[in-house]
């Protein structure tokens, strides 16, 4: 039986068409748009060269949004990985009721983002929220979690961590369970203690999945929209506005398509550079450590 070369393309053609039509073409079109200008008063596109880009770097709200995006991404990813790793290590050791506990811990990942945003907004409610009630037991006055410019972004990061740490735990747990038991038995016989075993056996085993997860989570955090939109709307006073939200606002509320396109492209370039540098370093590092 001959496994033909030519016919295979027919099977993947639909996939390629979809990708071309709703990913590649828009990407190119976005680049084109970023050199043009439109506004709510004049919806036609006029060529303006690099003008949109020049404007960006003088735009305070873009720079603030950019900073918020960085804080949001680093804060989210760090705690998602940390909590996910601890949860995975714990789940791995459980012998009793593992499946039930695992299902419970996984639930936030499955609950739709908007339901999570709504229920956390209710938890954060300044007057009737459960969180402020618990804080009041310790003598705190009512805290405006989502209404305080210093707290709002952090408060939403908590929700993002809550939503995604189960996914991290799931992936790490899957990797841990693939490690042969004999490796650990040998380590115990050799008299390794808890931390030695963790740093010399467990961590190297999960290093590759950790680096993949870090990249994935960073991209997802860069891309987030729902939580910020539904919980703070970027406020108060734009203190929690991330770039994704600004792009949405500029494009669909202010009809500044060209401006929004150039913002999106800068975001994309940042992500691309980050991904390439990240992959380059993790790859090199792993090569060296062999």
């Amino acid at each position: 039986m001959k496994w033909g070369y030519e016919k295979g393309i027919i099977y993947i053609l639909p996939v390629l068409l979809i990708i071309a039509f709703i990913v590649l073409f828009p990407l190119v079109y976005n680049i084109y748009l970023s050199f043009h200008q439109s506004s709510i008063y004049s919806p036609d596109l006029n060529f303006v060269g690099l003008n949109n880009y020049i404007k960006l770097f003088n735009d305070q709200s873009f720079i603030a949004g950019f900073k918020n995006t960085i804080v949001w991404t680093i804060g989210s990813v760090f705690f998602q990985i940390l909590l996910g790793l601890i949860a995975a290590l714990l789940l791995w050791r459980i012998n009793y009721g593992k499946r039930v506990i695992q299902t419970i811990i996984m639930l936030p990942w499955i609950v739709p983002g908007i339901a999570a945003a709504a229920s956390w907004r209710w938890l954060y409610h300044p007057d009737f929220g459960l969180i402020n009630y618990i804080f009041s037991l310790f003598g705190f006055k009512s805290i405006l979690w989502l209404g305080d410019p210093d707290l709002a972004l952090a408060a939403v990061i908590v929700v993002n961590v809550w939503k995604m740490y189960p996914f991290v735990a799931l992936m790490i747990l899957a990797r841990l369970q693939a490690i042969p038991k004999s490796v650990y038995e040998a380590a115990h016989i050799d008299g390794g203690n808890f931390w030695q075993i963790f740093f010399h056996i467990t961590l190297p085993m999960i290093r590759s999945i950790l680096s993949v997860l870090t990249l994935l989570l960073s991209i997802w955090a860069f891309n987030s929209f729902t939580f910020i939109y539904a919980m703070t709307g970027g406020g108060p006073a734009r203190s929690s506005e991330i770039i994704g939200l600004k792009i949405y606002r500029d494009a669909l509320k202010n009809m500044m398509f060209g401006q929004a396109a150039s913002e999106a492209l800068v975001l994309f370039a940042m992500m691309l550079i980050f991904s390439i540098v990240y992959l380059y370093y993790t790859y090199n590092w792993r090569e060296e450590s062999r």
């Binding site: 073409f25 990407l27 860069f222 792009i247 494009a251 929004a260 396109a261 975001l267 994309f268």
Partner: peptide
């Protein structure tokens, strides 16, 4: 891996 924001306006 594309940022969704890049696709928002053109789509």
């Amino acid at each position: 891996m594309l940022p969704l924001a890049v696709l928002l306006v053109p789509l």
